[in-house]
Design a protein around this nucleic acid. Structure first.
Lengths: 204, 204
DNA sequence: GTCTATATCATGATAGAC
DNA sequence: GTCTATCATGATATAGAC
């Protein structure tokens, strides 16, 4: 019974691929390395995935789906743009610590180089959700009237840079330590009503 | 005289490499393609650069040097963090329009995957200059007391995201159109003294 | 469905003439 | 220093037994 069906085979391959791709890059990883890491035969891989790109496609779809789900959950949990954006940054930070490989693959890899048919990252579902979140915030009057791209870039750009820096080993502490400061900065950037912490009055 | 010295040979190779690497990625570009695009022989390339990585190293050093120079110029031209950061974003935006290939290669490529010995981008000279700029701003009292990484990420993160989005074709207008809004958001995020455009007084 | 063994071929790199 | 012709490696992908 050596040739029995292994229902977890696809999962094992995809998981090994995530490890290798996020660690050393797609092009520096050979299919034979994935074979070794996943403990399956190369024949099975090509049977299930068709070609090397197919592995990356399956991985990309899997992680992209999870990320979109996470964003939707976070948004659905609150009513205001302020709370939604904070929850989102908190989850992204937590996810970076819990699954750095996942975040590295999603945020960091140049998918266009090995998945030419995939739309650019910024057109993907999670990014669209971010822009919609910001648009609703503007409609509610929470967020200043700005170009939507500018507003979403400004609200989340700092957090994204912190994630990238953390993955690069530049940031010493776990990201949640910086949550208040980072989200606070992003929110001040776009909020219509600015919190006034320690502002000394100058004239009026 | 066919074997004469061609002083521009290195430049032609590096320029062709920039085109190809930023267009389709380092790993999707063969040395033979560079040969064709640059109009030189493969022998000359290996004579001058040693190996394929050598081409990328030369390109990286060249563009990194130019970028560092540009940052230093922009900073030297002003005294306050406010002006320095605005000038910097303005130049980065202009550079993105004038030389998108350069910006794509510097900001966007995963150098670690093909230049394993190069330090991470965020440790490179230009990024260090950004952090120093922010630190001086804090010392002068222009910038709120924040973690330096958080502050520089928040001040420039929005601009970086706009550059990435523009290179991805998401942003319709040339970046300088958005300069005021983008820099304004970044500055509000970290400024100690917040400009109060249309804030209706609530209580005191 | 899973496996081993093999085919094919493009790539990075070299040799050596001029 | 520049070139052409060639090599050698290792990658993706396939064939076919079980």
């Amino acid at each position: 019974m050596l040739a029995a069906v292994r229902p977890d085979l696809r999962a094992r391959v995809v998981d090994a691929a995530l490890d290798l791709f996020s660690g050393q890059g797609y092009f520096n990883t050979s299919v034979h390395e994935i074979v070794r890491a996943a403990g399956v035969s190369i024949g099975s891989i090509y049977h299930h995935f068709g070609d090397k790109e197919g592995i990356a496609r399956a991985l990309h779809a899997h992680l992209g789906g999870r990320m979109a789900q996470m964003v939707e959950d976070a948004v659905a949990r609150h009513d205001t743009c302020r709370e939604q954006s904070r929850e989102l940054v908190a989850r992204l930070f937590a996810m970076t610590e819990a699954e750095p490989r996942t975040m590295a693959f999603l945020f960091y890899a140049r998918h266009r180089e090995f998945l030419p048919d995939e739309p650019p990252v910024c057109s993907s579902r999670p990014f669209v959700l971010l822009r919609e979140l910001v648009e609703r915030g503007m409609a509610r009057g929470e967020v200043r009237r700005l170009d939507v791209l500018v507003a979403s870039s400004s609200l989340f750009g700092g957090a994204f840079r912190m994630i990238a820096s953390r993955l690069d080993g530049i940031v010493p502490e776990p990201l949640p330590v910086y949550l208040d400061e980072v989200w606070g900065c992003g929110w001040r950037a776009v909020a219509a009503d600015i919190p006034q912490p320690s502002r000394r009055r100058k004239s009026a």
